[in-house]
Amino acid sequence: MSKLFPKCPKCNTSHFISFLKHAHYVCSKCGYLLRLDAAIRVKMICDKRSFTQFDENIRSLDPLEFPKYRDKLDKSIKETKLNEAVLTGTCRIKGFPSTIGVMDPRFIMGSMGSVVGEKITRLLEYSLGNFLPSVIIILSGGARMQEGILSLMQMAKTSAAVKRLNDNHLPLFTVLTDPTTGGVTASYAMLGNVIIAEPNALIGFAGPRVIEQTIGQKLPQGFQRAEFLLEHGMLDMVVQRKQLRSVLGTLLKIHSQRPYSYH
């Protein structure tokens, strides 16, 4: 793919990169929201130079000695120059301090193994220790198969960390982007105190193909898309990408006040 003229993966139209950037990586022809590298997302959401990364040196091992996993990890690290599928740190959004986690589509489809689970948990624990709200921008194919049961248990670990946060009156805001499926949806993604989704994002527990195979029928139009989830009461709002930073800023602002302080 040309770096100067990237193509929309949906309609194949080439866009001049600076126009695309200006349009928040939304295709002007067909409206498709391009998947964003974590670093680009950080720039889009956080105040300038406010992001400080932590835990950047935690790396995945291959505890199951799963076929080809080591190669897959090495390739992802080389291609993304990231150590894992999530960036975590502290930042400010419209002046309000927060922790932030951003998942990256290029790293084994943002799947959650031990490291993603650990980094998300540490982010939530850091928020707890420093009385900060948390924002997590989610993009994930689910639990990482290659780490087997260890991946599954990250769902329990991260969900318990959200509970501790909430028990101490600290909020989590989740932004569900395309795709948010499997074990990540069934843990911290759906535990946001406010849950936001990007337009048309695929969000669900089971993948559409698995459902089709199980029930032996075609899925209805728009099934498991953000607007469908909103309609079924699973989300608070669907927000356009260009409004996201401002909506998050307002949420942080409102939650920074506690007019009736009972503790």
Binding site: R59, L61, P63, A160
Partner: peptide, 8 residues
């Protein structure tokens, strides 16, 4: 649960 996971 906090202890579950293997990484370097």
């Amino acid at each position: 649960y906090r202890k579950m996971g293997v990484f370097s």
